[in-house]
Design a protein around this nucleic acid. Structure first.
Lengths: 229, 229
DNA sequence: TCTCAGTTTTAACTTTTTTTAACTCAGTTA
DNA sequence: TAACTGAGTTAAAAAAAGTTAAAACTGAGA
């Protein structure tokens, strides 16, 4: 299962690349850095990524060609291009390949992070087609924001909804704590972590009437919504 | 027959500007890029545009002044301001000029496109005189200022009308509180915010007879008029 | 100009939701 | 088993939103 968004970063500048990689990884997006196009493609073929960030000007294989090749395998994966001021570039080629964004250097780390997050949010929204989940005797309607059992409806608050929705997406699979924090609170710190504990508690109380549903903790890793059916 | 929307984009950053221009053009909105206020104004006077996107901080003539000048010629043309996070700016001045939206950098391309499209939809509604909205079993006629259900008409007051109209424009999408305050009250402060609460309450009472319409709060963000159809 | 009804704003107060905090309990490792 | 870290519980504080009523404003008609 996919717990986190794993980024493939292709940037020829070893120093900047390393800084970006460290920053993104720290912010909850594990990142692999490649210094040229060939390396990036090789890495892509031998690993599983959820997000591509690539410079336009890249040694061996340029960013556009890299993106095109990756698009052949994956029509959905978000691709963001980085360009420097000096570089002559073919923006429309980028967008025809299906770029999700272009970011011009110089940019701040936070700017990059913000845009990565924005694109993730969007991609997640797209997949949010299914909105009614059956959890043993509970019915969870994420559009109407209610949890129903024996005809009794309980209205969910925003945080309850987002968190329960996340666990439903990954029903019977482990969701990592840090992933949940990023998805629901969009950041990770001590207080958000405690706050999540509180909401885990609330969700457990909401689901307590049917022993066939259980929000189980996986020590040191995260949680798993176990549904017997 | 759909008319193409031609955009005048004023942005001092040559690179970002070029990317935005290419992106918008590719997405079906032919765009002309100007790098400063004087150039933008000159272009505006010698060409026909349907949409203005301008940075607030612009060389020679700033974005606000540019917008004000254009407003003298055209009371209807949609104007969107781009601002950077850091820049201290005068949001209410923008809305007094009649801004349709403010977009804070960094934003993703898709975000910009979405908002441009949303504004076009609205403008089309206005010019087509599509002013009647069907909200489940309610009919809202924004020209006659009435809300009708089962043949019973209720007259709406000014504020009720403006606010409900705004929510209808963004039906099933979230309208941010501060955006609503700007659009309806043209400024944002503690009392306006409380005042809006009062009108949210009024609108909910007006719409309470059909459970298929709901003005839902999104905690910490805004409201969403949810209509099941 | 004055009055009055309709409308909007201000204000005080309540409720809901989220966050912070303090403390307890459980699982892991040396 | 002690020490440590992760997780669970509960309560309080803080922030956001909802409700209600009175005050202030506004504009049409006397």
């Amino acid at each position: 299962m996919k717990k986190t968004i794993k980024i493939l970063l292709a940037d020829g500048d070893r120093n900047l690349g390393f800084i970006l990689k460290s920053f993104l990884t720290l912010k909850g997006f594990p990142t692999v850095l490649c210094l040229d196009g060939t390396e990036a493609l090789e890495r892509y073929e031998n690993d599983a990524f959820d997000f591509i960030i690539t410079e336009v000007l890249l040694r061996n294989i340029d960013g556009y060609t890299l993106a095109e090749t990756i698009r052949k395998y994956d029509k959905e994966i978000p691709i963001v291009f980085l360009t420097s001021k000096s570089s002559r570039l073919n923006v429309s080629r980028g967008f025809e390949i299906g770029a999700d964004d272009y970011i011009t250097k110089p940019f701040s780390m936070d700017e990059l992070l913000d845009r990565v997050k924005a694109i993730c949010r969007r991609t997640v929204l797209k997949t949010r087609n299914e909105h009614i989940f059956q959890l043993a005797s509970y019915t969870f309607d994420s559009v109407r924001h209610v949890l129903i059992r024996n005809g009794i409806e309980k209205k969910l608050t925003g945080r309850e909804l987002d968190l329960l929705f996340l666990f439903c997406e990954y029903k019977n699979r482990v969701v990592e704590r840090s992933f949940a924090l990023m998805r629901v609170w969009h950041k990770e710190n001590y207080f958000n972590a405690r706050n999540m504990d509180v909401y885990i508690n609330k969700i457990r109380k909401l689901l307590k009437d049917d022993p066939n549903v259980e929000l189980r903790n996986v020590h040191g890793i995260g949680y798993k919504l176990v549904v017997k059916e």
